[in-house]
């Protein structure tokens, strides 16, 4: 049954990338328990607008938990208190009347703040560009059923491929490590025959790019797994470690002569 909540919000406001930010307190009244967390912020923004104040900038898009655009550290937890839930899928029935909610952006050197709660996550794109693909041009594919993939492997690949790239793993990790994100992609391909030809190169290249972006290292605290809205497991990190270890022995840098167009 729908109820109404009165809440106190403490929201991180920051004019721009270089500006100094701070928590600003906003009371909101009459929030429906059926509303989503982002709809609650919509309501706040409408009110701010009426008062002539600038609305709070926050990232969001699909609002159905799949695009990975929404973020938010809610009361110190990525995507709020629920497991396997994105902020857009978090509903206000999860909160009590009179609650104070602290809302902060993801924080990491590799995710610089653009404004208020909006951060720049293009580091993830660059990590994928380093090797998160199977190099097949259009036009080369054989009949799909020529590649057999056992159901178990396909399921494990899918488990890992379900990553939505939201960055909660980085945001929740005490080291701001992107290991779970990288591990998910490496595992996805390592589980499939299509991923085998570039398996070692991929592990090396993606880890090198991850390090270059300034993400921290993994210290096996597994907070990322608890924070991940897509349910990616830390077994993928073990898999990444294994792939990386093997590739360190097996993979030799391409010789100059074999360098083709790419």
């Amino acid at each position: 049954m729908e109820k109404k909540l009165n809440l106190t919000l403490k929201i991180w406001r920051q004019k721009g990338p270089q500006a100094q930010g701070r928590l600003v307190t906003y009371p909101v009244q009459g929030v429906s328990t059926d509303a989503s967390f982002l709809e609650m912020l919509d309501v706040l923004n409408e009110e701010l607008l009426k008062k002539g104040e600038e609305p709070v900038a926050f990232d969001h898009d699909c609002r159905e938990g799949i695009c990975g655009m929404c973020s938010l550290m809610i009361n110190g937890q990525t995507h709020g208190p629920d497991r396997e839930t994105t902020t857009c899928q978090l509903h206000m029935r999860r909160f009590k009347d009179g609650d104070t909610i602290v809302i902060e952006p993801w924080r990491a050197k590799s995710f610089p703040i653009l404004k208020d709660l909006v951060v720049d996550r293009t580091a993830f794109d660059r990590v994928i560009a380093a090797g998160g693909y199977a190099s097949v041009n259009v036009g080369n594919a054989q009949d799909a059923n020529c590649i057999l993939v056992g159901k178990e492997s396909a399921d494990r690949a899918m488990d890992a491929a379900a990553c939505i790239g939201c960055g909660a793993c980085v945001a929740s990790c005490k080291n701001a490590s992107a290991m779970l994100f990288v591990a998910a992609k490496v595992t996805h391909f390592a589980e499939l025959p299509q991923g085998q030809p570039e398996r070692y190169k991929r592990a090396q290249a993606m880890v090198a790019q991850m390090d270059a972006e300034g993400f921290g290292g993994c210290t096996n605290t597994y907070e990322c797994e608890a924070a991940c809205p897509a349910g990616i497991q830390v077994t993928t990190i073990a898999k990444l470690n294994r792939e990386y270890l093997k590739s360190s022995f097996a993979y030799a840098e391409e010789s100059k002569s074999s360098e083709g167009e790419g």
Binding site: W12, M73, Q77, V102, R107, N175, S177, T219, T221, E223
Partner: peptide, 24 residues
């Protein structure tokens, strides 16, 4: 690892089923 997050959170809470002071 500290340098990877120059500015910390104002509030922090684990989502794991455990207390704050854990070995890891």
């Amino acid at each position: 690892n500290r340098a990877a997050r120059p500015e910390g959170y104002q509030m922090r809470r684990s989502k794991q089923n455990r207390t704050a002071a854990t070995p890891s």
